[in-house]
Design a protein around this nucleic acid. Structure first.
Lengths: 173, 173, 173, 173
DNA sequence: AATGAATGAGGGTTCATTCAT
DNA sequence: AATGAATGAACCCTCATTCAT
């Protein structure tokens, strides 16, 4: 990965996240990355290839993010870490996460599969803690996580820490 | 509102909801509505005007939808109706609601103000029922509602009724 | 000629004169005349027909304007009146005359034939006054008149009366 | 300035001069220049940018044309050269000069400032030759020049050399 | 690897004109 | 006579992509 390749990816990430995939022209990306437009196509084939490269990087980050939770053996900590996930994301990564959300709507890229390991870990955790309907608990928790992430990234004035604490209390964690 | 105007709005709603605003060309809308492309501009000025016309209709529907909840005096029923909201939406209205979600991401049209009356009604309801932190309860519930709507409209395999019942039980409703 | 027909002609004259024929849309003319766009085509067939109607009216005005000069028997007065022609045009007729000039360039409508009677009268006048080359004198004078009209209608800061007097003196008139 | 850029400019000059700015589509320019339409916008930004590029070149030619006159120290020669200006223009430059005239009417681009140096030189010349009203003499002469240029470029049958000679004689030059 | 000129398809929009009422 | 909805061609312009260098 050359330096210019990085610059293109960075510029694309920013612009796709801020303006959306379709609303961002490759020419804008090139200008933003201080690179000739042709170079984008040399390195990534086409506009979708550029997106895919960003998505692949996303895949990796998801794995890193989830790994910490999935590896956790204490069931309470699994749930706690899941709930605290949103409040942990670094402000410098906002563009990255925003893009993930955006794409789900703009290109109907689901990204649901990525959640499977987390679902399993959570399901297992709720079972161990003798919750009545572990499956529904998982679903409910993930809906909350999704809603919270969505709110935060859209710039809602919500206080993430406060509501995170509030939910933890509900689960006695 | 002439017959062709309706057809344009309907076609635009469908396409904007399915493909997104930027990815849908006015020419596609025209073809879908079996109408000349120029007519779109005669009636709605420009592409954004067309979108606005759909949004205005949306505004109306939001008010109708919320009115029923906001008018409710029994606090338990306010919360119940809010939780059941998603499961009530008619399949034939999916495009409409999908578009609302999509636009929040594609054009960063927040639509947060529209929620204010609902927030108030819920806050009031939680207070009456002696919940400790009514404000946080509202926030939490709305995050869940948002997440659920998002999941359903994105075609998740989630069972809306089941999870709705599950949540009602959590609130002892 | 109905009242609406007049209004269309008036609006078209103004707009064609100010913005040019090609830059003025029939829709703009209709709006300016407070009339439906279709009416223009009912009355004048097409956009060029509308222009022609204005031009026909122009033809008439040219004849009226020149008649006074051509009928003059005193040779000195023929020349004097020609020179004074520009300073006589009423400010309310500026649009009309401006359009004539504009069309000569935009549509290459010459309007040269219209000048023939004037040329003859001038030629005759210069002959009677024993000018050496009446033909050239006519040509020169008309070039000047054309230049002066052009300058005035383009909004030059030239003082028409002053220069008119100056020229009259050159011809000892 | 690449070869294709030149071809675009040349084609635009011809077409704008012949048909007018508004009546010439960028697509026509592209075809005439045997070039893709998009290239016009890559190089000149938009249609007006294309026009401006032509106008800038015009600016240059004006300076060259006037320089010769303005540098002249002999007052008689200043006037003589001014009068002879029109007869000097090369037939191959007709499109260029025609466009200058056309634009004055179509877009109301005055170009009056460009004449200032010439006005000064002429005013000075008439003063030195003890003309009574140098200012008016200048105005008169320029009106004539404008009228003559206009006539010639519109394809009048006027004999430029003959009338030029005639005027020179009037000034005893 | 990198540029920037060049392309052609398609973008949103305006146009003159027609037609039913 | 008059309207205004409706059309389709053409408008200027932007797009993703290719190519020669």
């Amino acid at each position: 990965m050359t330096e210019k390749q990085e610059k293109i990816l960075q510029a694309a990430l920013e612009l796709f996240a801020q303006e959306g995939f379709h609303a961002t022209s490759t020419s804008k990306v090139a200008k933003h990355a201080c690179v000739s437009e042709g170079l984008i196509f040399r390195h990534f084939g086409n506009k979708e290839g550029l997106l895919q490269a960003i998505l692949d990087e996303g895949e990796r980050r998801f794995r890193v993010l989830f790994a910490d939770i999935v590896m956790e053996t204490n069931p309470g900590r699994v749930i706690r870490k899941t709930i605290e996930m949103t409040s942990q994301i670094d402000a410098s990564d906002y563009d990255f996460w925003k893009l993930q959300y955006k794409l789900k709507w703009e290109l109907e890229v689901s990204g649901d599969e990525k959640m499977e390991p987390l679902k399993l870990a959570l399901s297992n955790a709720f079972s161990k803690l003798d919750f009545e309907s572990p499956g529904l608990e998982v679903a409910l928790l993930l809906l909350f996580i999704d809603g919270l992430g969505s709110a935060v990234l859209k710039g809602s004035s919500i206080d993430v820490n406060e509501i995170t604490q509030f939910l933890l209390k509900k689960y006695n964690l």
